[in-house]
Structures are given as structure tokens and as C-alpha cells.
Design a protein around this nucleic acid. Structure first.
Lengths: 201, 201
DNA sequence: AGGTCGGCATGACATTCGTCATCTCGCCCC
DNA sequence: GGGGCGAGATGACGAATGTCATGCCGACCT
């Protein structure tokens, strides 16, 4: 009997996944949480074998949660289940010790198999995404560029970003300029979009 | 026995919802599609009573699909099930004749009840969203403003948008300026964000 | 000590943007 | 025919943005 933990911020999806997986004879959902920062404690309390983690979650994102699991509950393997097939997500997830990465586009029948493979120590990776991850490569952005770009992502002015980042206004422009150069975007907004699509944010 | 049609572009979510709803004695999933433009034909072929429609779908979005259902398969009621609780979505969905609107945050147990209520002719509306819809109101943007803002949404420059829209460069700026005024955003990107959050795009 | 390098700031410059008043043209209405 | 009206265009102007060269400073070699 494989003991499962579900982490997804959408209660409906969580419950539906639980229903789907509980249909399998050898699977058992023993915990559900809606926030990333509750994953480790729930995994410990429920003695979960495998954690299904969404990437977009309040508190702690799924990748960070996988890292926390690795540290705090090493016997629990993690399988990232996410809406967005961003190459950077896959790379970061594997870097952090996740055992599997599945996008929500995959047929429902394959999920249980993915869980079993992960539980038996194998790695499960979406093949399309794997090649995308290779062609796109790692994020070319430095830490600061990422930070500034993230702050600028919701459309604030340079002055606002400079204030939030405790940087000079000119420096912010420099970082944004560098980020635009590296992403190939001609505009700040375009750079944000490209970085998002690649999972670099 | 209530016959259900599921429409969601994410196969995993679709399958999971099917598993969840099939647990109920009086519910039966008779069709599943991954695109909005397959909804009507599938509903007719399967003689569905209620259609669960996601908003974000390729081909035709869930709201347009609900409208198409109203016209092409009037005996099938539609229940919008969406990730994003955008007030504008709710309003448009109701305008178009949808019988219910549920966000994916709601507990899984309530979904079956929502389906039953919709089937019996009642309307199901998320109460929080209903008040939000009242306070936010309808989109203040004109058709052109919406179009230009949508084109500008992915970060292109004014010249690009002008080319795609077959408008003068100055006119584009005028529309963007108007859109920023109406949304309250100080920046083009911010206007995009606000319009998106309200479901005006 | 000297040298190099990365993070941050500064200043100057050409574009681009956001704003506004104004003009044209087609359309509807009386 | 005349008057309004809305969509689109134009032009001008100040502010914000994108780009680049340069200066400063602390860290880290050797």
C-alpha cells in the first residue's frame, strides 16, 4: 500500500485527484494540504511515501516544498504535478531532488503508474519537457536581475521597483536592460513574459 | 441518473473530476472533451444533461461554449468550473445563460451538489464572487480598447500593436491611454494586469 | 601592495510612452 | 441641409524608459 500526500491549492482538484487515485488498489491518499509550507509536517504526521506537489501554491511553491521534503522527510519521495510545462521548472525540480515531473495535460490513466514508478525509486519525467529543458537551458539571469524582473513583473514603474528593491533607479534600469538583452525581449514586459514562459522567475 | 459532460483542457483534471463525480450514485460522466469547440457535438451525441465547462480552453473558451450550448443543445445546462474567480467571467457567464459558476477552490464535496442543483433548474453561484462582481461591475473598456490592450498584453511595442491592429501608432497610444485611465493603472503593463484580474480581457 | 572582478551608482543621450487638444470623416437623426 | 457623435488620425510636449560609458568600492587572489 503506497501512502500518498496531495498538495494543491485548488481544493476541487485536490479532491478529484484523491478520488482518482483512491480507485487504485495499491494507492491510498493519507493527507491533503493546500499550502506548500504544510507539506513537510503533514508528510511526517501521515507517514507518506510519495507526495504529489503542485508548483503554484501559497506559502511555499512546490519545488521549494520538494526541497524541504528532501531535508525534513527523506523517506518521502516527491512527484511534481503542475499545470505549466515550463522547462525551468523541470530543471529546478530535478536539481532539488524531486523524483518525478508530470504536467496536468497527461492522461489520467498514467498518473497512478507515475506514482508507482516514483515509489519504486525510478524517475518519471515528461519526455517532451525533457528535450525542451535541454534546448532552453538554464536561466541566464543573475540573482539580482531575476529579483528586479520579478518586482517589475506586475507593471510597476521604475521608481517603485527601485524603492522595493532598495536600489538606485539607474541600477534598476541597468538590470532590466541586462535582463532584456539576455531574454531577447525588446521591452520590459516582453522580457517578463519570456522569463515566465521558461520558468526563470 | 444525471448525465454529465466534462470539458477541460487538462486531461489529468478531467479524469480526476470524472473519478470524483462517478463516485456519486446519481451521476454519470458520459462524455469528456478537451476543447471548447467540441462541446456542442459531444453534448448532443451523448445526450448530456449538464456540462461542466472550464473557462480556459483551446478552440472556444468555456463561456462561449456555454453560449453555443444554449443555442445548439438547449436541454443541456452548463456549469462553469474555473480556476480564476474573475468577476467579469461570472457576469459574462450568466449573461450567456450558464446555470452555475464554481471556482476550483471550493471543497470537492460541494461539486456534486452544485451539479444536482443545476440539473434541477436552480442557479449555483459562488457567493463571494457574486459580491465581487457587483462591486467591480462590468468592463468599462470599449471594444477597441479591449482589442488593443489584448494585443499589447504580451509586451510588444506600440509599433507592433499598431501593425497587428491596422491602426495608427498614435491611435494605439490613445486607446492605451484611455484603458489606463479606466483601469486606474499607471502603466500599460499594470492596466493589462488589472484588466486580466477582473476578467475584462 | 598591486591587480582584477563583481555589485552598485551616476550621468548623458536617443527612444519610446503617456497625455492632451485638435482635425477629419462617415453616420445617424431631426 | 445642418448639427451632433463616435472612431480614427495627427502633432506636440513632458515624462519615463532603454542604452551605454564611466566611476566607486569592497572582496578575492598572488
Amino acid at each position: 500500500m503506497i501512502r500518498l500526500l496531495l498538495a494543491d491549492d485548488q481544493a476541487l482538484v485536490r479532491g478529484a485527484l484523491a478520488a482518482l487515485l483512491d480507485l487504485e488498489r495499491d494507492l491510498e491518499v493519507v493527507a491533503q494540504v493546500g499550502r506548500g509550507d504544510e507539506v513537510v509536517s503533514a508528510a511526517l504526521a501521515a507517514q507518506a511515501d510519495v507526495a504529489l506537489l503542485d508548483v503554484e501554491m501559497p506559502g511555499l511553491d512546490g519545488i521549494a516544498a520538494a526541497a524541504a521534503l528532501r531535508a525534513g522527510a527523506p523517506s518521502c519521495r516527491s512527484l511534481i504535478v503542475t499545470t505549466f510545462g515550463r522547462p525551468g521548472y523541470l530543471r529546478r525540480a530535478l536539481d532539488v531532488g524531486a523524483s518525478g515531473f508530470v504536467v496536468k495535460d497527461t492522461p489520467a490513466e498514467q498518473l497512478a503508474d507515475a506514482v508507482r514508478r516514483v515509489h519504486s525509486g525510478l524517475r518519471v519525467v515528461d519526455p517532451d519537457l525533457a528535450v525542451a529543458s535541454l534546448t532552453v537551458g538554464d536561466s541566464p539571469l543573475t540573482e539580482q536581475e531575476t529579483r528586479v524582473l520579478t518586482l517589475a513583473a506586475d507593471g510597476g514603474t521604475v521608481a517603485q521597483v527601485a524603492g522595493e528593491a532598495h536600489l538606485s533607479e539607474g541600477t534598476v534600469r541597468n538590470y532590466l536592460s541586462a535582463a532584456m538583452g539576455k531574454t531577447g525581449g525588446r521591452t520590459r514586459a516582453e522580457a517578463v513574459r519570456i522569463a515566465r514562459d521558461n520558468g526563470w522567475l
